[in-house]
C-alpha cells in the first residue's frame, strides 16, 4: 500500500507576479513553494504513515526547479520521491496521463493532492486523474483515515460538512483544515538532501503526451484601477451610500 502525494511547485502566495513580454516573468519570482493545499495533503499522508498505513511517495510534475518541493516533502517524512520532468506547459490531459503513469509506477492506491494549485487555481488534476485511473474521488476533504480497504473522510460538499466513506482506490483532494502543518527539523533536512529522486521523462513512463491542445497566447496584468475617492469619518457615509447608488449603480 502507501499513499502517493501530488505536489506542485508554485510561486509563494506572497510573491508579486509581474509580466514581461506577454508572459509571467518567472525570473522575477524570488520564492517558490509547495502549493498550500498540497501541504495539507502531504500532512495527512504522513499522519497515515505514522498510523501504519505505508510509505509516502511524493510526486511532482514540472521543470527542474520543482525538485525542491520533493526535498521539502522528504524533510517532513516522504519516503520516495518521483520527479516527472516537464519543461513546457502541459494541458490537463497531458498532466493527468503523466501523473497516472507515475501513480501506477508507485503502486499506490490512495492518492492525495490539493483541491487546486495556487498558480492556475484550476482544480482539474484530482478529479481528472481519478477518472483516468478508474479510482473514486472525494474532493474538498480536511481529514482522511483508512482502515482495511475503506477510507473515511471529512469533506465540505455541496450539502455541507459530511463524514463520507469510500473504498480504496481513491483520490482525495484537500482543502485547508485544522491540521497544524509540521515543520522539518534539522535532521530531517539533512536526511532529505541525501534522499535520491527518481527522475522520469514522459518516455521513461511510456507516455506519449503529444501536443498540448491548450496554447497559452498571452499573460497580462489585471487592468489598473483608477484612483478612488477617499472620505474621512462616518459622517461621509450618507454621501458614499448615495454614490454607490447614483454613480456606481450597484445597490
Amino acid at each position: 500500500m502507501g499513499v502517493a502525494v501530488l505536489l506542485k511547485q508554485v510561486p509563494d502566495t506572497t510573491a508579486k507576479i509581474s509580466i514581461s513580454g506577454d508572459r509571467v516573468d518567472e525570473a522575477s519570482i524570488t520564492k517558490w513553494s509547495i502549493s498550500p493545499y498540497d501541504e495539507y495533503a502531504l500532512e495527512n499522508a504522513i499522519k497515515l504513515k505514522e498510523s501504519g498505513f505505508g510509505d509516502v511517495v511524493a510526486i511532482t510534475c514540472g521543470p527542474s526547479r520543482s525538485a525542491k518541493c520533493l526535498t521539502e516533502a522528504a524533510a517532513v517524512g516522504a519516503d520516495r520521491l518521483i520527479h516527472i520532468i516537464s519543461e513546457s506547459p502541459l494541458d490537463s490531459i497531458q498532466v493527468q496521463s503523466l501523473l497516472s503513469a507515475a501513480v501506477k509506477e508507485s503502486g499506490c492506491e490512495v492518492v492525495m493532492c490539493g483541491k487546486q494549485a495556487a498558480d492556475t487555481n484550476s482544480g482539474s488534476t484530482g478529479p481528472g486523474l481519478a477518472t483516468t485511473l478508474g479510482f473514486s474521488c472525494v474532493g474538498g476533504v480536511t481529514e482522511v483515515s483508512i482502515e482495511g480497504g475503506n477510507a473515511s473522510a471529512t469533506r465540505l460538499g455541496p450539502s455541507g460538512l459530511e463524514q463520507v466513506e469510500v473504498a480504496v482506490p481513491c483520490v482525495f483532494t484537500f482543502d485547508k483544515g485544522d491540521s497544524e502543518l509540521r515543520r522539518p527539523n534539522v535532521r530531517g533536512i539533512m536526511m532529505a538532501k541525501k534522499k535520491p529522486v527518481d527522475v522520469f521523462s514522459a518516455e521513461d513512463l511510456g507516455v506519449d503526451v503529444g501536443d498540448s491542445m491548450v496554447e497559452i497566447k498571452s499573460h497580462s496584468s489585471p487592468p489598473e484601477k483608477k484612483p478612488g475617492q477617499k472620505f474621512v469619518g462616518s459622517d461621509s457615509i450618507p454621501e458614499v451610500v448615495s454614490k454607490l447608488r447614483e454613480e456606481a449603480n450597484v445597490i
Binding site: S136, V138, S152, T154, G157, S159, G160, L161, E162, Q163, V164, E165, V166, A167, C170
Partner: peptide, 8 residues
C-alpha cells in the same frame, strides 16, 4: 462509491 455516513 462515496457514501455519506453522517452530516456534520
Amino acid at each position: 462509491t462515496v457514501a455519506v455516513k453522517q452530516a456534520l
